[in-house]
Design a binder for these strands. Structure first.
Lengths: 181, 181
DNA sequence: TTATCTATGTTATATCATAACTGGTCAACC
DNA sequence: GGTTGACCAGTTATGATATAACATAGATAA
């Protein structure tokens, strides 16, 4: 098993078991079959939605698909433009509501540093990611950050503060861009 | 010595040595003589600016004073309103430029989660703070987060990512509000 | 003292986000 | 079948945050 999932090994909706997300936690920065990667994540999200009773409507699905097209974060208005081109509404709330749903369900993440959103590459897995944002190619990866969260909780506990939610984002250079520049 | 400063023990511009910032890293959440606290931080920032050749102009000083009035983060437009009331310009760039200067100098921090700014309570000390944001009283404390940063650097390094800047913010309940609620 | 640099002020606009209301769809229930 | 209630999508309108670009004025350095 490539890595531990907090909920045990997840089951893939698609056939086969060469899930890129399992093979590489730093998926975004690794070269991979992105079509497979995106389809796999989408399928997993769909399955989770069915399981939890959350309604994966056409707009919501389309927004997730759009986010999954690349490992970059997208602004709500960029998403909106794409939606409008596909015949969906073209007013901000359409995009924001779908994005909010995806974030709530854990199918997408909000990257505060960029005022943008990125598809979650590990839907259904309990993960507390740190976001690694490459300033050169704009790609965003989710790094496993259990240790970081633990350190943060400890630092907070030291002053009597109880952490409820946190965002941990790092700006820097991904492996590929570090070599290039 | 209350705690270690990376640059050695700082010297206080004000007399005495009962610097609240030294006594309590979780300054914001501890009850303290805030007038003293603010004056001390301001004096330290002024001294640092002189030392580094950075120009602490009237607007910039005033913005820092405003931020120092409480341990809460303030939006740029709130700051602007205060500036305008004091006879400074009342257009957004006036506030944004002063805030940008303060952040660059390390005299203030940007809290991305709040789209707001808070005075740095440890100017001149090398520190990599995590921000603890109380969702009840809105106060923001800087927790010493060297360990958190180290964990983040390590998690990033594992996938070949080099961290340049990072923001670590936690939302939760401060000691006082935790008791109250 | 002139040239240069930096800071402030202003106008205008870009970008990000949400409130409030309208109408449509679907399932549960009578 | 019709009604109800929940939820979703669409729209209008506005609010909140942030920056580009240019004009003016003050400090610094030659």
């Amino acid at each position: 098993m490539p890595h531990d999932h907090a909920k045990g090994d997840h089951s893939h909706a698609s056939a086969g078991d060469d899930c890129p997300g399992c093979a590489t936690p730093d998926l975004a920065f690794a070269s991979h079959d992105h079509a497979h990667c995106a389809a796999d994540v989408l399928a997993r999200a769909e399955a989770l939605a069915v399981a939890s009773g959350a309604r994966m409507t056409p707009v919501r699905r389309r927004v997730l698909e759009i986010l999954l097209e690349s490992h970059k974060a997208m602004g709500a208005y960029d998403v909106l433009q794409r939606l409008a081109a596909d015949g969906f509404g073209n007013q901000p709330p359409v995009a924001y509501r779908a994005l909010e749903f995806l974030v709530e369900q854990g199918f997408a993440h909000r990257i505060r540093r960029l005022n943008a959103f990125a598809a979650c590459m590990h839907p259904g897995e309990v993960h507390a990611p740190a976001f690694l944002i490459c300033k050169s190619c704009d790609m965003v990866a989710e790094a496993p950050a259990a240790a970081v969260r633990a350190a943060l909780d400890a630092a907070a506990a030291e002053v009597g503060f109880v952490v409820e939610r946190s965002n941990i984002e790092a700006l820097g250079l991904c492996p590929a861009c570090r070599v290039g520049a």
